[in-house]
Amino acid sequence: TELRLDINGREIKVDGADKETLKELLKLAEKNNDEKAIRIIRHLLER
């Protein structure tokens, strides 16, 4: 399955993203107070 998050109005594919990319996405999600995106990205970073 493909995991996509809508961050800042942009749909971004997050599964398969490297750790650096995920960290950047996490910063974006935190800036937007997007709890769902934050939770998902943190979960991916823990893998």
Rank of each mutant, 00 (worst) to 15 (best):
T1S: 11
T1E: 14
E2H: 09
E2K: 05
E2A: 05
L3M: 06
L3V: 15
R4D: 12
R4W: 15
L5H: 02
L5K: 03
L5R: 01
L5S: 03
L5M: 05
D6T: 15
D6W: 15
D6Y: 15
D6M: 15
I7N: 02
I7M: 06
I7P: 01
I7T: 02
I7G: 02
N8S: 05
N8V: 03
N8L: 06
N8K: 02
G9H: 02
G9N: 04
G9D: 04
G9Q: 02
G9W: 04
R10D: 10
R10T: 14
R10Q: 15
E11D: 05
E11A: 04
E11K: 05
E11N: 06
I12S: 02
I12Q: 03
I12P: 01
K13W: 15
K13Q: 11
K13T: 13
V14K: 01
V14T: 03
V14H: 02
V14D: 02
V14Y: 02
V14R: 01
D15Y: 08
D15I: 07
G16P: 15
G16E: 12
G16W: 12
G16R: 12
G16C: 05
A17F: 08
A17Q: 09
A17K: 10
A17I: 06
A17N: 13
D18A: 05
D18S: 07
D18L: 04
K19Q: 11
K19H: 09
E20W: 11
T21P: 01
L22R: 00
L22T: 00
K23M: 10
K23H: 10
E24F: 15
E24H: 12
L25K: 00
L25Q: 01
L25M: 06
L25S: 01
L25V: 05
L26A: 02
L26E: 01
K27M: 11
K27D: 06
L28Q: 06
L28P: 00
L28Y: 11
A29R: 00
A29C: 05
E30F: 12
K31A: 12
K31H: 09
K31P: 02
K31E: 10
N32A: 14
N32C: 07
N32P: 01
N32G: 14
N32I: 11
N32K: 05
N32L: 14
N32Q: 10
N33P: 02
N33F: 09
N33T: 05
N33S: 08
N33V: 05
N33D: 06
D34Q: 04
D34K: 01
D34T: 02
E35R: 09
E35C: 07
E35T: 12
E35Y: 13
K36A: 11
K36H: 12
K36G: 08
A37T: 05
A37E: 01
A37L: 07
A37Y: 03
A37R: 01
I38K: 04
I38P: 00
R39H: 08
I40Y: 11
I40T: 08
I40K: 04
I41H: 00
I41Q: 00
R42M: 10
R42E: 04
R42P: 00
H43A: 12
L44E: 03
L44S: 03
L45G: 00
L45W: 02
L45F: 04
L45A: 01
L45K: 00
L45N: 00
L45P: 00
E46F: 15
R47I: 12
R47S: 11
